[in-house]
Design a protein around this nucleic acid. Structure first.
Length: 317
DNA sequence: CGCGTTTGACCGGCGC
DNA sequence: GCGCCGGTCAAACGCG
């Protein structure tokens, strides 16, 4: 986790919690208080105590500030990990395979599994996109026949009560069947890509047997046409059927949702993989995230409450 | 009326 | 050969 790039001096977290002093400013505050606060006319001992108190408090506040910065860094690191894995998936999925022969034989599974917003017990990292690919040695026994279409699997978080087996991925799908399978009580829906008549791609969607709040979409084959929502992406809209627009982070603490639809957070996909590496982009991204946080009244209110609570714990100030 | 979805029937691979 | 099971077909149906 490389957080050294964060230019902390450029991050101004206006938290609306009144004047916050940093440790190096503490002596100034002390001098001001010596002249303005009649309580400081008391003996040197009490002054010393108060000075120590103030210093301790300032240290605590700067510690909290530091922790918040670290939290932000961690959030960004997770975010960039997710993003790069997503780009990997986007650039590698429907490519480099031979012609697809419509074989009715049982498919040999050459799996590539990716999960969005994953939180099942086996996948504890809330930001990890699991990519499962069975090795070629593993599947070569079953690959004795014609080359199989590429198969990829995607986990999509959904409402467990939502019975619609719809995974919005930007393509147009036509449902041609539904079946209840043995290993899973929830039905499996079969879709064919209907964006291009000759497109051989098929999709199976079924609720995960282990966690019904996840839809498992299995894609077979590769699209022989462009992504229908490319234009939308280029124009910055993130509407119908496009790629996941927000990522929910579910942790033992509060739920955090990073809204990636915000302008400035979503660069043009064509140049994205290069731009995301540039320090300018990363700096911009952190500033965006920081400004999103500080503009969120709930966040600033909660932070202000926490800090003022700490201060009020020491009423002698 | 056209298009998409639903759903029961059918097909074919696989294991016993 | 038979039965099971996943996958597909296609008629019926619903909706705009």
């Amino acid at each position: 986790m490389d957080s050294a790039w964060i230019d902390r001096s450029s991050l101004s977290l206006d938290l609306s919690v009144g004047p916050l002093s940093f440790p190096d400013q503490a002596p100034i505050l002390k001098r001001e208080q010596l002249h303005t606060n009649p309580m400081h006319v008391r003996g040197r001992d009490s002054m010393k105590d108060e000075t120590q108190d103030l210093e301790a408090k300032l240290n605590r506040i700067s510690e909290e500030n530091k922790k918040l910065n670290e939290l932000l860094s961690a959030m960004y690191a997770n975010y960039s990990t997710l993003r790069s894995q997503f780009f990997d998936f986007m650039t590698t999925s429907p490519k480099e395979k031979g012609p697809i022969s419509p074989s009715r034989k049982r498919k040999s599974e050459s799996l590539e599994t990716i999960s969005f917003g994953d939180k099942t017990p086996e996948r504890t990292d809330v930001f990890s996109n699991r990519v499962e690919s069975t090795s070629s040695e593993d599947s070569c026994k079953r690959l004795r026949e014609d080359p199989k279409p590429k198969i990829s699997k995607i986990y999509v978080k959904t409402d467990p009560s939502d019975s619609s087996l719809v995974v919005k991925d930007g393509y147009q799908w036509r449902k041609y069947g539904q079946k209840v399978t043995r290993d899973n009580p929830s039905p499996r829906a079969y879709f064919r890509c209907s964006f291009a008549p000759s497109c051989p791609v098929k999709k199976k969607v079924q609720k995960s047997a282990e966690d019904r709040s996840f839809l498992v979409a299995t894609y077979e084959g590769e699209h022989n046409h462009g992504h229908p929502s490319q234009n939308e992406l280029a124009h910055g809209s993130c509407h119908k059927g496009s790629l996941p627009c927000s990522v929910s982070i579910n942790s033992p603490g509060p739920t955090i949702t990073l809204d990636l639809t915000q302008q400035g957070l979503r660069p043009n996909f064509g140049r994205a993989s290069r731009e995301i590496e540039s320090p300018e982009f990363q700096r911009l991204l952190v500033e965006q995230m920081a400004s999103s946080l500080t503009k969120d009244p709930n966040f600033t209110a909660a932070l202000a409450t926490a800090i003022s609570g700490r201060i009020l714990q020491h009423p002698q100030v």
